[in-house]
């Protein structure tokens, strides 16, 4: 899923206070799971904004609404569009994709991001999410025992490890980051495939990654 984090309150308040009536729009998919921008988080922010506006004497009316997904046309139903039409601005609590989708849909209504979008990650335990994929466009997990060298090695090395690997930790942040290459080695060892790591890997074709410009995936067979 896409993992995000609520923006600092002041940053959101600075945007909201420019307007009279604001809609906080939550997203019911990834950011609900990572507890950043779902119905509940929309409610927390609405309460915080109400308290702050009262304390500072600002006149801002805040409405709350959450849709299933902000990156899919079909969820922007009539009720949602009606609510948007009533306000001067929308704070999207979706990931960066949701914010941009809203911006394109809502035409002349101001839109602000309520979250900082972080990465594609997994839930390690409730309250802890970690990066696992960088969307490089050409997955090499099969060659590395199911551990991603692009997203999980701090230097995205395909011929690792570097000299900074010590006690299974990465030199970039030995407290918090496991060395991906240690994980790759351990896993390949378990699979009895260590000798494959002896091969030098040629440079990865990064044109499938962001280096080739913004990407689009098209499936002619399912298009309507």
């Amino acid at each position: 899923m896409i993992v995000a984090e609520r923006k600092p309150f002041e940053e959101i308040y600075e945007c909201v206070k420019r307007h009279r009536k604001v809609l906080l729009l939550g997203c019911g998919t990834c950011v609900t799971v990572c507890m950043a921008g779902g119905e509940k988080e929309v409610n927390v922010l609405a309460n915080q904004l109400a308290l702050a506006a009262r304390d500072r004497g600002d006149d801002v009316e805040v409405m709350e609404h959450t849709i299933t997904r902000q990156c899919d046309d079909e969820f922007f139903d009539e009720a949602t569009m009606k609510k948007v039409a009533e306000v001067d601005a929308v704070v999207s609590m979706g990931c960066g994709v949701g914010v941009q989708f809203c911006a394109a849909k809502f035409g002349d209504t101001a839109i602000y991001p309520g979250l900082n979008t972080k990465f594609y990650g997994a839930t390690l335990e409730q309250g802890v999410w970690a990066e696992r994929c960088a969307g490089c466009g050409e997955c090499v997990l099969g060659d590395f025992g199911g551990v991603c060298p692009v997203a999980r090695c701090s230097k995205s090395l395909l011929n690792g490890p570097c000299g900074g690997s010590a006690d299974g930790k990465c030199e970039v942040d030995p407290e918090n980051v496991d060395c991906a290459w240690q994980l790759i080695y351990d896993r390949m060892e378990r699979l009895g495939r260590l000798e494959e790591l002896e091969e030098n890997r040629p440079m990865k074709d990064w044109s499938t990654n962001r280096d080739g410009g913004p990407r689009t995936v098209t499936r002619e067979d399912v298009k309507l």
Binding site: P8, F9, L49, L51, A52
Partner: peptide, 8 residues
């Protein structure tokens, strides 16, 4: 933390 951010 949340209430403090909101001025309480």
């Amino acid at each position: 933390k949340l209430v403090e951010e909101a001025g309480v």
